[in-house]
Write a protein that binds this DNA or RNA. Sequence first.
DNA 1: GAGTTTGAAACT
DNA 2: CAGTTTCAAACTC
Length: 498
Amino acid sequence: MEQEKQRVEPPAPEPASAPQAASEPRAPPPPQQQPKLVVPVQPSMPVTRPWPMAIIPSVKPVEIKSGTPAKKKKHCNCKNSQCLKLYCECFAAGDYCDGCNCKQCGNTVENEKGRQDAINNTKLRNPNAFQPKIENGPITPSVRKDAGAPPSLPKHNKGCHCKKSGCLKKYCECFQANILCSKNCKCMDCKNFEGSEELRAIIQGDNSCDRNNIQQAANVALNGAIGSSGYRFSPVRRKRPLEDTHYQRLNVEGSMMQMQFQEANHVDASQIAASTGLEGSTGNFQGKSKLVYRSPLANTIHLTDVNDLANRLVIVCRKASEGFTTIADNKVEMEIDKEICTNTDQNFDENKKEFQKATASRLGNVTQIDQQIPGESGSYCNVTQIDQQCDTQEDSRPASPGTRALLCDEQDLTFGTTYRSSIPVALHDQDISELQTAQENAVLREFRNYLRLIIARGQVNEEKSSSGTGTELDAMRNHESSTILPPVRAEEENQCSG
DNA sequence: GAGTTTGAAACT
DNA sequence: CAGTTTCAAACTC
């Protein structure tokens, strides 16, 4: 038989009227000090957040929940905890239950003694149990509010431990608090970080102010229908160990690249705001910090560069293949190689045509190459074939032309069976092995070249930015091959010939 | 609104 | 401190 809760409508819980107020003044101590929040707090404090809203003043309440302003008190539904454990949101918030649907409620004024015991027990177990869970950094919120100094991003003190929600549902305390997961979190497969496509999808859904849209966006994001970080099924725990003081910011163009970089480097997601394409569009996460650390590689790696790299790799790989089958024409091949690699600053079509011409004239494979290299295609692989061959791999997500080319590479050891069939030499196993080696060498060389190029770009950017100019990136990009590649190339030639 | 899922809190 | 259980909110149907 249910015991009717012995609750008396508490007068609007005034801090002064609370018994605890005398023993624990409300003056806010520095963070992480002795617990302070034991008394009923502001009546307007939303119970949906077990910590005072004031602790995260800079967090723009997005109100992911359907447009309910954060004013309305939420009512718990506790059944077994008697509202005297932290399970109870009211209790955790330091609030009395008021109009809740709880049963056997002990979180009432009438049960103040039992309540205080419960509070003490809870604090005994965890002295910070009633501390705000969201930390804004070393500066107290009130000070921060007035100072106008760049605030550090709020983060969960303990961090979440989500496993399945991707930290994109309100199960996640971080997400519920409208903050990004941080290094404190021990969550798995976290998608609640700046630059997350999934998060962006949810935020966009949130902008629609439609709860269903938000939920749908979250589900879609979690299911990976939208661009994913590629770690969707990874059981690897994703931590963000960098210290906040580092304030490392990444600014690699393209959120996917950023995400991958972040994953690869375990960058604290909460630290890479402000420099991404999400800036200004992330709702609750926007405007936290205007700290702008720009990587020297900012604006250096463009999507076209990635495509260009992929194309280059395809070229050199094919060239290696051709060279292998026409050993007698080795000298000619090297000339082609030179042509291709010294023209890296020209656009792709020019390179392609040159290569086409050279190859056609020197290897006599005009017909086959023309078939395999459509003039207007963005890749050396036949687009249709690639679509058929590569789209069956992994997810059915769209891939860039370069990615398609590389996928094609993986699928076919000599870049396409049809193309290989055009090679008039029957390859034995050993030949194939040698061919693979040659291709691998070619690809690695080219990739090394490209990395050097990127490094050089970054150095130029850094110099420019430190000297205050920093506007000659484009010039650098335009002349990169003439200033960087030739020496590298010469070095390579020496190595290869040696 | 019932049932399920989820992750924090509590417990061992 | 790690593993398990309990709990209530969030979520799904």
